[in-house]
Amino acid sequence: MGRDADRPDAERPGDDEVDDRGIGSRELVVAAALALAVVAATAAFPAAVDARAAYEIPVEGQSSAGDLAEPTGDAWESVETVTVPLSSTGAAVPGGADTTVEFVRVGAARTDERLYLRLSWSDPTANESTGSLRAFADAAAVQLPVSSESRPPIAMGSTDERVNVWYWNAADGTESLLAGGAGSTTQMSESAVETTATHTGDRWAVVFTRPLSADRANVTDVDPDQDVNAAFAVWEGSNDERSGQKAASEWYYLSLGPAEGGPPYETVLWALAGIAVVFTTLVTVEGIRRTRGE
């Protein structure tokens, strides 16, 4: 509809429209009924629409883990993937604004016990070593608030609102980190986070997995019935990316909460309501024109 409204030859309300005496005509009733019907139809067939809210990462419940721990596992085929845009954080380190990876695709699944996150991104060069003086490894991370209801400052949280970081790099594997602001990142011992990574063609795919429940303090306790915020970052080793020189996302959320009536579906309804309002207006205008016999 937006395109029509923009067209120069589209019918537009004239100045005399202010004088509204035609409202309530038969056409309007029809339009309203039509809009209602669309809304009702959408309510009845939610699956017919790509029903994902902005910033949502749907988490697919699976009865058994199967091969979810494998980045190439069949179990991932049914899991919806969200393309998350990344941009440099502009951190105050040399090259802080110079990052290369622009998108990461994120899929999420869970069993009753574990959460699985699969990150994949385009990277033609696999940089798998930090074992020489100028080598930096490709890396990726997932950031979660320590307190699962909170939404800490995106850049590594703050002293009051700390974050957990699940960190993987292609040379040294997995680390579980705790941070309360930029520069405060500390490695936690005995991480429960596990990763598996593959580089095929020109993409990395990494699965991060961890038991849902926290095994101790300062670890995000993932409640299977409650959404939790999550952010993502990728480092391109061949561009010497490390530390704050990273391509990072905004806060997204893992939608673990009740599926129906949750944020995504609401968004669809609001969008449709918007369409209905515009449609109604157009029909009304047309009705007025006709009433005037133009």
Partner: peptide, 23 residues
């Protein structure tokens, strides 16, 4: 230290060294 090597770059006398084993 997390082996970022900014200090190696930053020292004009090149008197910080990266240990590629300990990272």
């Amino acid at each position: 230290c997390r082996g970022y090597r900014y200090c190696v770059e930053g020292c004009p006398y090149k008197k910080v060294f990266y240990n590629a084993q300990t990272k």
